[in-house]
Design a protein around this nucleic acid. Sequence first.
RNA 1: GCGCGAUUAGCUCAGGGGUAGAGCAUCACCUUGACACGGUGGGGGUCGUAGGUUCAAAUCCUACAUCGCGCACCA
Length: 915
Amino acid sequence: MTKEISTGYQPGDVETQWYDRWVKSGCFRGNENGEGEAYSIVIPPPNVTGILHLGHVLNTTIQDILARRARMEGKDVLWLPGTDHAGIATQSKVEQKLRKEEKKTRRDVGREAFLEKVWDWKEEHGGIIIQQLKRLGCSCDWSRERFTMDEDYSRWISKIFVDLFEEGLIYRGKRMVNWCPKSLTALSDEEVIMKPQKSKLYYMRYKVVAENGEGSPDRWVEIATTRPETLMGDTGIAVNPKDERYGDLVGKKVLRPFPEAEIPVVADEHIDPEFGTGVLKVTPAHDKADFEIGVKNNLEIIDVFNPDGTLNEHAGPEFEGMDRFEARKKAAEKLEEMGQLVKVDDYENKVGFSERADVPIEPRISMQWFLKYPCVEEATAAVANDEIRFRPERWKKTFTHWMGGIQDWCISRQLWWGHQIPVWYRKEKAEELKGRESLDATGAGNDLYVGIDPPSDEENWVRDDDVLDTWFSSWLWPFATMSNSDEEPSPTEKRFYATTDLVTAPEIIFFWVARMIMAGYRWRGKLPFKNVYFTGIVRDGRGRKMSKSLGNSPDPLDIIAEYGADALRFAVMKTAPLGADIRFDITNEGGKEIYPQVVEGRNFANKLWNAARYRQMQEGEGTFDASALSIYSIDILAKLDQLEKDMASAYEDYRFNELAQLLYDFFWGQYCSWFLESSKGAFAPDADPALRGSTVAAMDLVLKRFLLQSQPFMPHISEELWDNLGYREEGCPEFLMQTQLQTESVLAGVDPAVINAAQTKVKAIYESVSRARNLKAEYGLGSNRSVKFIIDPNGGAPDGGAFDETAVFQQLVGAAEVVVEPSFEAEKGVPTALTEIGKIYLPLEGLIDVDAERERLSKELAKVEDELKKVNAKLANENFVSRAPEAVVGEMKERQVQWQDKSDELGRMIESLGA
RNA sequence: GCGCGAUUAGCUCAGGGGUAGAGCAUCACCUUGACACGGUGGGGGUCGUAGGUUCAAAUCCUACAUCGCGCACCA
């Protein structure tokens, strides 16, 4: 058996080999001493423990395309990568492992030892995602990779904290915060996700306390609540002051059923009389709104929960130690027993969930550090007046809205993995200071130390236990990755800050984007980036967001292994309209998951591969001689020019899907389907050597320029073909990815009139070919054998003369023979098509059927007349003729003539067939 | 409740006042000298619904419907 050589492109080794070579040659390194225009992006740092998902693929491919394109435009590019320590996520993972393997909690092992374990874990498992980004082809400057817990980077965090503390923007206070009972930490508002929940609305009744024996001894007031388990913490009930039903109750007391206590009835305008019974139970310790009502009315605050969401001693012995959801049932049961539960309705409400731990958060009063945001006005203005440009622009509104209602940021977390707050308390005063409210720069004198470095007599001090919110480190990312905090701006920063583009998901517009703008302005006096491109969300075929928990997110690495990174990149880009969501289609074929969009990408890569192979099969160098170019070569080169123009303009607007579409349409639809097919004659043994040479030259030109254009999207295969085809020129960089785009038109030396004439003629030929193929197919002639066409160019040839492109016509149509016969007199019933180059006859032996042909032509005539009717109607409309733009009317008139001619001609053809 | 977005062929999506488009899928034909991960041709759409503006609306405007996403202290 002979060995079969695969004609298909095998991406695997090709991709990894090129990637290694690029890295080794320093192609990705940002040059701070360069002289070109600077272009920079900082990567949104993925979690150090993260695994690549399709969202990352979308996001980083866009960045890679921007970076690669910028390099080819001669810019000095820095794409700065790194990872984020992801406080809660990482710590939970290690805690989980600890629990599973050693049956211990982090407290069992102690802070120091636990942190060591986290670092170990990070060394072992961290950075997987970096390897995955490399496999995708990302051209990041890995020599500058950063991690938010790096020592230099950490010093930045402390410095920023100290600055803000001294400025009075950071303070500590006892406040209602979002508490995660699973992670045992406070969370910022942004880390809480509201989810609709099917729950119950419990109607219960409290007894009104009789005053000095007056009033009805049996008066009850009905209250609706979703959280009966907190009633032990109720210290009042509230009604709307305007609510006539309850007006007389205000100032009286009701009896809390358990633990039994008399609690006051207060009036508050926030109460909606329409909701439930119009009466609210007030639990100041466990609800933000209740807290405010409590403060206003001087109500007692009773916390009935432990930090982990179980109930504490204040709930009474029956409830102590019980989980909050069990306690809910139990409280309802108990009310029932007491005859105080009126009814229970099904009810859907929204409950805040911890983003990371995915459990309902508990509003809880606790001592936390807060930040009043700096530079809010400047940041708001920067986006409002497009100093920072958002794409799509609609996110501006969201941003402005949030900035307008901005709340102080709870920055402390009761975690260990993260940047510990740089605050020390004098040992003997520590307990007192830790409990002090409203602690700020003015408060504690010499007993408080806030500094980047620990105090020199550290042994006399106790450090604050809390760490900072991970986002408190991320907001410095654009500049803290470039310079150290104690030094002048580094050469890297001087050259590459502010960055050019930021590519990120709209989900983190508040978490990250807004805060970076403020931080950049506050500490660098410069906005951190010029453009922000918000990507869409990657969804599955059913429109659901891809997520690990749904299990609907395929592993990009599996896809890459099967189809290649270039295919995946191309697939994602082709369906990534500006900021709109992407549906990642998955179909199932015989139990195997197929990704149609990626298949398309792979097929495209394969097409590219084979088109290049075809070039390699033609021997020798081409010689570019403008005067020897065929009309087909001129045509494809003109289209190449147009492609480059269209690409440039689509890049301006970040229209990545359009860019991918342009590449695809040009290469497959124009170059392969038409040009390569039409050029085959030039390689026949008896072909004119000048034609052959110029055709090869045209092929080379197109391939070269096309590879330059496609490199950012499909870097690996483009590089491979650039190499295989030997397109590197003397004195040019080693790699395609370093090669500069050429901007000069490929047809610069050719007379525009010649180009125009060639394109007109080629267009006519191609259209006629389509008609001829059509005719063939209509008569069921699939094979190219034994098909003969006769062309009667009688006045129909585009240049007015005889038709001289029969060879190409024959090749394109797939015919055995094509002859030109002016004024050909066909037998009756010979199938005919009316085309741009004349009448085309398809004589069929034994198949001549006058009736059939008449019917076919009649059908066509009907279509033509339909069009003609439409055009006629339009032109008969006076309003149209007088009010539509001249150009539109002119075009319509032209169309009228065309359809009329066609109709006449078809009419004659039918007539000639006889009745 | 307010705001934003989407709704175009079976699927994934372009188009954005002037003749409804692509890829996939489907059907028919084709082992034509790069590619069957290919070639050729066909079928398939009253552009979510109802109004309005206009000579002309898939496109602009207004409502509504469905889906999605933000924001909001309705227990």
